[in-house]
Amino acid sequence: MDTTAKATATTKQEILAAYEYRHATKVFDSSRKISEEDFGFILETGRLSPSSFGFEPWKFVIVQSMDIREKLLPYAWGAQKQLPTASHFMLILARLPRDMAADSEYIQGMMRDVQNLPPEIAGGKQKVYDVFLKSDFGLEGNERAIFEWGARQTYLALGNMMTAAAQIGIDSCPIEGFDKAKIEQVLTEEGIMDPAHFGIACMAAFGYRVNEPRGKTRQTAGQVVQWV
C-alpha cells in the first residue's frame, strides 16, 4: 500500500471512529470548558457547510449567559440537563419565508454581495430558484413548508459541526424538544432574535461527557441502503 493509500485508510478510520464516539450527550461536565480555538473550529465547519443554492439561511446563536439559559429552560423540555451543564449551547435560527423569496432583499444580497454573481448570472439563478420554489418543490403559498425547507438546510451545518466536534473529542447533542413559540418569544424579548427575519430551527449543546454511553445502536447497512 503506497503512502497516499495508507493516509486515506487512516483518515477513513479516524472519521468512522468519530461517528462511533459521538452520541447524544445528556449531561456534560460543567467544570470543563471548550477552548475558544476549538469552538471556533467547530463554528467554522458550520459556516463552510453547503446549503441549497448556497443561500445559507442560518444564524448560529451561542448562548453563554446562564441568565438567558435559565429563561429558556422552562420551554426546552429536551434540554433540561444540557442547558445547565453544557460548555457551549447553540440556537440555530432559520430565515423566514419573506427572506427566502426569490426576489427578496436577502436573496438578492446573497447573490450580489456574497456569491459575487454578475447581474445577468444572478438574474438567471433567480429565475431557476423561483421555479424551484413554485413548481419543483411546490412551496409557494405555504409559509410553514418554506420555513421547514430552510430549517432543513441548517441541519446540514448542524451535522457537520457535531461530526467536527467528535473528531476532536468534544461531545454534542442535537435538540428539538422545545416550545418553538415560547423560545422565540424569549429570544425576541431579550433582543437576541429579529422575529421579522428568523425563527428557531433547532438547538445543540457542546461540551464534555460525564458518563460513558451504551453501545451505539443502528439498523444494518442492508436495512437502510438500496442499490438499483
Rank of each mutant, 00 (worst) to 15 (best):
T220C: 09
T10M: 15
Y129D: 07
T3N: 13
R98C: 14
A5Y: 06
F39K: 08
E176A: 10
I168D: 04
F28T: 03
D179A: 10
Q13V: 01
L48K: 13
A122T: 11
K59M: 08
S52P: 07
D136P: 08
R47C: 07
A24E: 14
F147H: 02
D171H: 14
A122N: 02
Q219S: 09
P118Y: 03
M161Y: 05
I107S: 04
D136G: 12
F55Y: 12
S31F: 07
A166Q: 12
F41C: 09
T188V: 02
Q126L: 06
D113S: 04
I192D: 13
H197Q: 11
Q64Y: 02
E140C: 11
V128R: 05
G150N: 12
P74E: 07
N142L: 07
P97D: 06
N116S: 14
E212D: 14
P50H: 10
W227R: 08
E140M: 08
Q82P: 06
F60Y: 09
S30P: 05
P213L: 09
Q167F: 04
Q126F: 03
Q13H: 02
A166H: 05
D38E: 13
R69W: 05
D2W: 02
Q115D: 05
M193V: 06
L117E: 09
I34H: 01
K216H: 11
V224I: 15
L83V: 01
I42N: 00
P57K: 03
A221D: 15
F206A: 14
V114T: 14
I34Y: 00
A122M: 10
R22I: 04
V210G: 02
Q126S: 13
K71R: 15
E105D: 14
V27C: 02
G177F: 01
F178R: 01
R112H: 11
D99I: 01
T8E: 12
E212W: 08
D103E: 10
A79W: 00
E184D: 06
V225A: 08
S30V: 00
M193K: 13
R218Y: 07
G169F: 11
R209Y: 13
K59F: 04
T11V: 09
G54A: 08
D29R: 05
L156V: 14
D171P: 11
G177T: 14
L139D: 03
Q223S: 07
S49F: 06
R218W: 11
N116K: 14
L48A: 15
T10N: 12
M66E: 12
V225S: 03
T217Q: 09
Q153W: 13
G215H: 05
K216A: 10
L91T: 04
K12Y: 03
K127P: 00
M161Q: 08
G199P: 13
L93N: 00
Y208E: 03
V63I: 15
R32A: 12
Q185D: 09
P74I: 00
A24Y: 03
L133H: 05
D194E: 12
L72Q: 06
L139I: 02
S87G: 11
S65N: 12
